[in-house]
Design a protein around this nucleic acid. Structure first.
Length: 646
RNA sequence: GCCGAUGUAGCUCAGUUGGCCAGAGCAGCUGAUUUGUAAUCUGCAGGUCGGGGGUUCGAAUCCCUUCAUCGGCUCCA
């Protein structure tokens, strides 16, 4: 007998060799029908694997990430089986579950090139295979046997994967006719896979290396119920309506012009208004927190970037230097503001008493992103960072870093940005050549970040290989409408640039000391932040950010004069207001202006003119009653004050 | 940059196997209407069918090329 500990702490005796599925059946037949995988002593495994010794277990249903993961992983195998039957000789790379669904990287047999038309073929084949309720079976194999199998099959991708595995840890899973090298876990059979959608095709480099062959990646998603698939597809449709590129066009916030150049955003008046409001908002907070605002040029001598190390790292792959009539003289569009800020630091002597020094700039930078990477406002070639650099003594670093975390959290809270992930981005210890600086400084900086975050009780995820080339970062990530993650704020500890620029301060010992630098942004860039703001609000901005606060809708042209009086009154009170003088019915005017997401619609007709009032309608909410314009001004100002109660 | 897809009016989209002057709705402009809380009616105008080249008696439609966009990959100081 073995002892099984359940998540609620109860311990029960079972005979050795019992499986997760049998445990579920023992609890209830209903659970057995829904359970997808089981965690045994912290490892997620198959429901059909015998448990031979005392263990604590957790059964996973669809609602658990582990359950979904198992479901989609098995679905990837099902898709592979379908593809292999449709195009024999297909070679398979990897086929994991992802956040929403799964993919498989393949090289179709006989040189077949997959097109979108093939997606439906794959989908139908999958449905056919799934309906057979084939068991998915695990088999442990020796390395030799594994190599023999895939050598015979002629699949060099699997062979490469096997070559990196230890003998004795290799397992095969078979479902129907398809046998795959796989660690698992999997469903006991394909029976639960009821709803299937093969979504899209994409190219993906083998092992993520752009120097290696590009395989075809097939994306799909499956569900245990058709209704869930329908809901998911409906969600994707809905999300498209929140796409910032679409809303940006609808609400005339920004545009791009091929004549200006791809990836170079043009802010239209309404978008520029939002951008300016955000800058003003942040500037007022920065001043309260002891920042000094600076301004620097959009170009810098190429030697500046040779000193900083950016030229060596990015010089070849970015905008080319600008030549001047002066022989040998070259300038570059600035790809970041830090070197300029270092030179501001160097312009004056610094005492240990002056530090920390916080230097902020809304600095526009230029980076030659590859054409395929451009994406609306989130990935552009010219953008304005809400950049700042803190120059501090080593003993101040921890507190300084923590104060920035506090600032980021404070701003996010004011803006109702609750769904973010704090990510500690460390260097890849296997590829140290990609980074500059000494091991000692790197280890120190990484420790600083991890400990500062911990002291702030910030829950973080750690990603290795995501650091900047000069230092580790704490990144604040948020999701867009369809769940893609974007980095907004970032805080970076840097021991390198102070050395490269020979930054110093005089210590109490009257000796020269080296300050530490922290790079940080809150929004990341104005462009990306506005994009994320649009996607999260669906274009319905909080009142204080709305470019136009109100629109006056006269019932008929007879009341246009009265409407203009009100308009003047509101605009003179700093409430940006429009007027809709068209000869349309009031219902039409309301509809059109509701769709423009203007927060307040002010209706004036005979009644209002006679009593000197306006009828107030809140966008998305409806009629709020009648009030005097003066009352409305007070009302709206109160609301704005509440929204950004700093 | 790479893989796949797309590109028709300001916007959203139709356009059959190549065949008369390329269509609709919305937006715009006209005129009528003077309206009370999510679409009043009339008329008009608007497109070298992304650009360039080719095949053909004939191309939005087929081929080549180029640019841009979309979904991924790679990249993201």
């Amino acid at each position: 007998m073995i002892k099984i500990t359940f998540p609620d702490g109860t311990v029960r005796d079972y005979k050795a060799g019992i499986t997760g599925l049998e445990l579920a059946k023992d609890i209830s037949p209903a659970l057995a029908r829904e359970v997808l995988s089981v965690t045994v002593n912290g490892e997620v495994t198959d429901l059909t694997r015998p448990i031979n010794s005392d263990a604590s277990i957790r059964l996973h249903k669809w609602d658990d990430e582990e359950g979904k993961h198992t479901f989609w992983h098995s679905s990837a195998h099902l898709m592979a089986e379908a593809i292999e039957q449709l195009w024999p000789g297909t070679k398979f790379g990897i086929g994991p579950a992802i956040e929403n669904g799964f993919y498989y990287d393949i090289e179709p047999g006989n040189g077949h090139e997959l097109t979108d038309d093939d997606l439906i073929l794959i989908e139908n084949k999958m449905k056919e295979l799934a309906s057979r309720n084939q068991p998915i079976e695990r088999r442990e194999v020796s390395k030799q046997e594994a190599i023999a199998y895939f050598t015979k099959k002629g699949d060099e991708y699997k062979l490469e994967l096997i070559s990196e595995l230890e003998d004795g840890t290799i397992s095969f899973y078979s479902s129907g006719t398809f046998v795959d090298l796989c660690r698992g876990p999997h469903l006991p059979s394909t029976e639960p896979i009821k709803a299937i959608k093969v979504l899209s095709l994409a190219g993906a480099y083998w092992r993520g290396d752009e120097k290696r062959k590009m395989l075809t990646r097939v994306y799909g998603i499956t569900f245990p119920k058709q209704k869930m698939l329908d809901e998911y597809l409906a969600f994707l449709e809905e999300a498209k309506k929140r796409d910032h590129r679409r809303i940006g066009k609808e609400l005339e916030l920004f545009t791009f012009s091929p004549k200006v150049g791809m990836g170079l955003p043009l802010w239209m008046p309404r978008g520029a208004e939002i951008r300016a409001s955000l800058i003003n908002f942040l500037t007022s907070i920065l001043k309260k927190r002891g920042y000094k605002i600076v301004a620097t040029p959009h170009i810098g001598n190429v030697n500046l970037y040779k000193t900083s190390g950016h030229y060596e790292k990015y010089g070849e792959s970015s905008f080319r230097p600008i030549s001047t009539p002066q022989e040998g003289e070259q300038f570059m569009l600035k790809p970041m503001n830090c070197p300029h800020h270092c030179e501001i630091y160097n312009a004056t002597p610094h005492s240990y008493k002056d530090l920390p020094l916080r230097m902020a700039e809304f600095g526009t930078v230029y980076r030659y992103e590859q054409s395929g990477e451009l994406h609306g406002l989130t990935r552009v070639r010219s953008f304005t960072q809400d950049d700042a650099h803190h120059f501090c003594r080593p003993d101040q670093l921890r507190e300084e870093f923590k104060s920035i975390i506090d600032l980021v959290l404070y701003v996010f809270r004011l803006l109702n940005f609750n769904e973010f992930t704090a990510q500690v981005s460390l260097r890849d210890p296997d590829h140290k050549e990609k980074y500059i600086g000494t091991d000692e400084n790197w280890e120190r900086a990484e420790r600083d970040i991890i400990e500062a975050a911990a002291e702030m009780n910030l829950s973080t995820v750690v990603e290795t290989g995501e650091a900047a080339f000069y230092g580790p970062k704490l990144d604040f990530m948020v999701k867009d409408a369809i769940g893609r993650k974007w980095q907004l704020g970032t805080i970076q500890v840097d021991y390198n640039l102070p050395e490269r620029f020979d930054l110093t301060y005089n210590g109490s010992d009257n000796q020269k000391h080296r300050p530490v630098m922290i790079h940080r942004t809150i929004f990341g860039s104005m462009e990306r932040f506005v994009a994320v703001l649009i996607e999260n609000s669906a274009g319905k901005f909080p009142l204080w950010l709305a470019p136009d606060k109100a629109v006056i809708l006269p019932i008929s042209e007879k009341y246009n004069d009265y409407a203009k009086n009100v308009l003047e009154l509101l605009n003179n009170s700093d409430i940006c207001t429009l007027i809709d003088e068209r000869s349309e019915k009031i219902g039409k005017k309301i509809r059109d202006n509701e769709l423009k997401r203007i927060p307040y619609l002010l209706i004036v007709g005979e009644k209002e003119e006679q009593t000197g009032t306006i009828s107030v309608r809140r966008q998305g909410e409806g009629d709020k009653g009648t009030m005097k314009p003066e009352e409305f001004i007070k009302y709206i100002k109160e609301e704005i004050k509440r929204e950004i109660a700093v």
